[in-house]
């Protein structure tokens, strides 16, 4: 059986470093997948960088921050990476667009969750988010990140 935990972390200040703990379900056996979604709360018009311009059609992705997740019963971290705003390059080099433009909301497939396999004996996932969005925007940016932790649950005896 699969279970899902959604944990929301709010970031308010430029360069903020926020540690948090995510309690797992009692009967969790493994952590099997990770996914995240970012929600901007500050108005985008007020100077928040939401896309980077480049000379080539390829658009660099906006890096919002750094995410690290660790289990207490494992050495080191089991996930460490950058949080990326959206895939800005949907429909890259598709010059047929115009009538029905390629967008991630119309053409994307199910966003893939990252597959991991971590023992869930630990009961708590510890992690932090280090803000970068505020740094590149040069101001405080308020946003929330929903972290999705997919877990495999023990079947009831």
């Amino acid at each position: 059986m699969e279970g899902l935990i959604i944990h929301t972390v709010a970031i308010n200040r430029q360069g903020e470093l926020k540690h948090f703990e995510i309690p797992l379900s009692n009967n969790a056996k493994f952590i099997t997948g990770l996914w995240y979604k970012v929600r901007l709360i500050t108005d985008a018009e007020s100077g928040v960088v939401t896309e980077l311009k480049s000379r080539s059609p390829y658009q660099p992705e906006v890096i919002i921050g750094e995410l690290s997740l660790s289990s207490n019963q494992r050495e080191g971290v089991f996930y460490f990476g950058k949080i990326i705003l959206d895939n800005a390059n949907y429909g890259l080099l598709d010059y047929t667009g115009g009538v029905f433009r390629v967008n991630n909301y119309s053409h994307a497939k199910f966003p893939q969750s990252l597959k991991v396999k971590v023992d869930a004996d630990t009961a708590i996932v510890h992690g932090y988010i280090h803000d970068n969005w505020g740094v590149i925007s040069g101001r405080n940016v308020r946003y929330e990140i929903d972290l999705y932790i997919y877990q495999q649950l023990k079947e009831k005896p």
């Binding site: 360069g15 903020e16 470093l17 926020k18 540690h19 690290s68 080191g76 971290v77 932090y128 803000d131």
Partner: peptide, 17 residues
């Protein structure tokens, strides 16, 4: 490190490692 940060002068963090 990937586990976290330690900086006494940092006022933007809510925990040190």
């Amino acid at each position: 490190s990937q586990n976290g940060f330690f900086e006494l002068a940092n006022t933007n963090a809510n925990e040190m490692q």
